[in-house]
Design a binder for these strands. Structure first.
Length: 734
DNA sequence: GACCTGCTGCGGTATG
């Protein structure tokens, strides 16, 4: 192990020495052999700033140092900003070895791209979309430039797993191996990530056809400790005016906790981000101190975001960013003093990623969660009485800290939208291609292995009928009229969908953009970029909203869908309510991590849970309404709701609790019993009643039956639901 | 009671 670094290229060793490192980290030593040999894929799982990128590049660069014909390393990133960071970080190492590094994305310098075109060599840093555009526009160059490719590395791999974009990436990598004649002798892939749940399943997500084995390298000694606290707040119902709004208590605490240091506050929605930033900036103003609270989210312009990122990184002025997931991935902002999560996190995986942003110079990570619950009244719902937002937050903390568990990706998705995209892309790339070639490349040996021959045939014939593709007399498929039009536009390269957005302009300055699904009226007051504005003009043609500064205002309504809580999280919530205790057991001790308000809110919830005997009660009759407590994830909850609606009930779900209006519990139970024994109700059947099934970018071009099947696989799980209902009915005592 | 990511080629004008 000590001598591992001696296998690296001499100049790489010199570079390590120059950095003043006394030795390589464990993961860096472990990565040397597998990457130098290049006979396996490698998965490197280690926390942020543990040196994952170097763990790959030190041996990979050593492996290509002697042979500079063509591009040797292909680095793929989900973000342009990461490519720019990586370009900067690789500069000194690449200089020593006289290696060319080329960042290649929509905004990178044309000069460096054309240099690579003339003289392909060294390292290319690229996005999946830019790689797709190279395939379609210049696959001949790709074939010659990458002929000598030794390694592919994917950064922030968790951001791809289970998504449309991830499937696109896998398809691109497979097409690359095919183009280079490397299907039998695959190019080794390395995946880097800090947040991977169920590690042993990840290699299949990296190479679904298993044509190479995968070596897993995991950081063992995690020296970093975690300090964490859940703080509770109560939203009072007293008359407007003298009410102590929980929001102000939250902001008072944020002001006290964050002022004077560097912090990240994750607020979960762009509108809440704007509200908190505005209130905190006002507090600075009324206290006559310089403002150090700024918003950061996807609707803000690149310039505003980059200014804030630079301010955080420089560490000259104390800075707190109130942000959405834009600051979750590894953009270079250095480490911050602490991370605050306001309202419950959406998933443990993202909580873990956020937590990793704090902890300076080997110090502890500090994470606080600020959770607000409503004051209880006679009319309070079960959700309020059970304090579900707080209980969910506590359960997530336990799963993160004690179980080290994160949500795995949903592997049941069919990705038909991306399959259609890839059929068009392949046809555009080759000019003409046979149906059986497409099938074997994408489905039989490629990443769409779940697609049946029948589905594939149906898709192709529908694409023919809609003029996306045309079959020549020779049997070859070429692009049809509609297919030409779609693939010729630059918007084709990305497989994910973006809603139309309006630009928000004040004077001559663009402040950012807003999705059009929010209704904005002239004269309306909005909060944007941390300030208040009044809308002067909405230009529908130019998609511009003109605004002026204003004194007061309501926040813009941002659109969006619901979220999916995993089975494991709901089971953990059930468990802590049953036990009446959420504290984490460490040896003989039980660690308290909630403040007094959060403790008493939890006690209220546990008392209600016990009094109503909810450990053993799944069906509750409340007047003429029936309530079902399943403690299952949202896929099962949604399936039960759809089943009940299909049987004529007025059912809905809130925070995982199913409510059926004007229904007798016994009738609901009978309906569920009949569903259980009825073999004819399938997920497809349930999906038929959904009015809008087109969700992904190319869904609108799919034949009805595939659209149905794709939606059904995403939203419903009939088998697990039947099992869950069996369990619920066994416990039922009428 | 949601969030985020990415993409081209060309024509116009300004600047050195």
């Amino acid at each position: 192990m000590i001598d591992a670094h001696e296998k690296l290229d001499f100049r790489v060793q010199q570079w390590i020495f120059k950095q003043g490192w006394d030795r390589l980290r464990e993961i860096q030593c472990l990565a040397i052999d597998p990457i130098l040999t290049g006979c396996t894929d490698v998965l490197i799982s280690a926390s942020t700033a543990a040196g994952k990128t170097e763990a790959f590049f030190l041996p990979a660069i050593s492996a290509i140092a002697e042979d500079k014909r063509g591009v040797g390393i292909l680095y793929i990133s989900p973000l342009k900003a990461l490519i720019n960071d990586q370009d900067r970080r690789l500069e000194s190492l690449a200089d020593i070895l006289d290696l060319q590094v080329t960042p290649w994305h929509g905004d990178s310098a044309q000069g460096r791209k054309s240099k690579l075109k003339r003289n392909p060599s060294g390292i290319v840093l690229i996005t999946p979309e830019s790689l797709e555009s190279l395939f379609i526009r210049d696959s001949g160059w790709v074939k010659s430039a990458f002929q000598n490719l030794k390694h592919i590395v994917i950064d922030e791999f968790h951001a791809f797993i289970g998504t449309e974009r991830g499937h696109h990436l896998l398809s691109l990598l497979h097409r690359l191996e095919h183009l280079l004649g490397r299907l039998k002798n695959p190019i080794p892939r390395t995946a880097l990530s800090a947040t991977l749940g169920e590690l042993e399943t990840v290699p299949l997500s990296l190479r679904p056809n298993k044509s190479l084995p995968c070596k897993i390298i995991k950081q063992t000694q995690s020296s970093a400790s975690l300090k964490m606290q859940v703080k509770g707040y109560i939203e009072t119902n007293t008359a407007v005016g003298d009410a102590v709004r929980a929001e102000h208590l939250v902001c008072n605490d944020l002001y006290e906790l964050c002022r004077g240091g560097n912090h990240l506050v994750f607020a979960n929605s762009r509108s809440r981000t704007e509200i908190l930033a505005a209130v905190l900036a006002d507090m600075c103003e009324s206290n006559a101190v310089p403002n150090e609270f700024f918003p950061h989210h996807g609707s803000l312009s690149k310039e505003m975001r980059e200014t804030l990122e630079a301010r955080l990184q420089q560490e000259r002025l104390p800075t707190t960013a109130i942000c959405t997931m834009t600051l979750e991935l590894g953009i270079d902002i250095g480490k911050v003093n602490s991370v605050v999560q306001v309202t419950a996190p959406h998933s443990i995986a993202s909580l873990r990623q956020r937590m990793g942003r704090s902890g300076r110079r080997g110090g502890a990570s500090i994470l606080r969660m600020l959770i607000t619950e409503n004051e209880l009244t006679e009319q309070s719902s079960i959700v309020d009485q059970l304090r579900l937002e707080l209980v969910q937050s506590l359960a997530m903390v336990r799963l993160l800290v004690a179980n080290k568990w994160y949500e795995p990706a949903d592997s049941s998705l069919l990705h038909f939208s991306t399959l259609l995209h890839q059929i068009l892309a392949l046809t555009a790339q080759w000019g003409g291609i046979r149906a059986d070639q497409i099938y074997s490349l994408l489905c039989k040996d490629g990443p769409f292995q779940h697609v049946t021959v029948a589905h594939f045939k149906c898709l192709l014939s529908h694409m023919g009928n809609t003029e996306l593709i045309t079959q020549l007399g020779s049997g070859e498929l070429v692009l049809g009229h509609a297919g030409e039009k779609i693939t010729n536009h630059y918007s084709f390269y990305a497989v994910f969908k973006t809603p139309e957005e309006f630009r928000i302009v004040s004077g001559s300055k663009t402040l950012g953009t807003l999705p059009v699904d929010s209704l904005i009226l002239e004269g309306q007051h909005i909060v944007f970029a941390g300030r208040r504005w009044v809308v002067e003009l909405v230009d529908v043609e130019k998609k511009v909203i003109l605004v002026n500064r204003a004194k007061g205002g309501q926040p813009p309504k941002f659109g969006g869908a619901g979220m999916a809580i995993h089975d494991v999280v709901r089971q953990e919530m059930f468990k802590i309510l049953c036990e009446g205790d959420y504290k984490i057991k460490v040896g003989e001790h039980r660690i308290e991590f909630a403040d007094e308000t959060a403790q008493s809110l939890f006690q209220e919830a546990a008392k209600f849970f016990q009094t109503a005997n909810l450990a053993k009660t799944n069906f509750i009759q409340q007047g003429n309404r029936t309530v079902i407590l399943t403690w299952a994830g949202d896929k099962i909850v949604n399936t039960i709701v759809a089943v009940l609606i299909s049987k004529g009930f007025a059912a809905g779900a809130f925070a995982g609790i199913i409510e059926i209006e004007k229904a007798d519990a016994q009738d609901v139970i009978d309906a569920l019993k009949s569903f259980q024994t009825d073999g004819t109700i399938s997920a497809d059947q349930l999906a038929k009643s959904i009015p809008e099934k087109a969700i992904d970018k190319f869904d609108e071009y799919l034949p009805e039956n595939l659209l149905l099947a794709g939606y059904a696989a995403r939203a419903f799980d009939v088998l697990s639901t039947k099992l869950k209902i069996k369990e619920l009915l066994t416990d039922f005592v009428s």
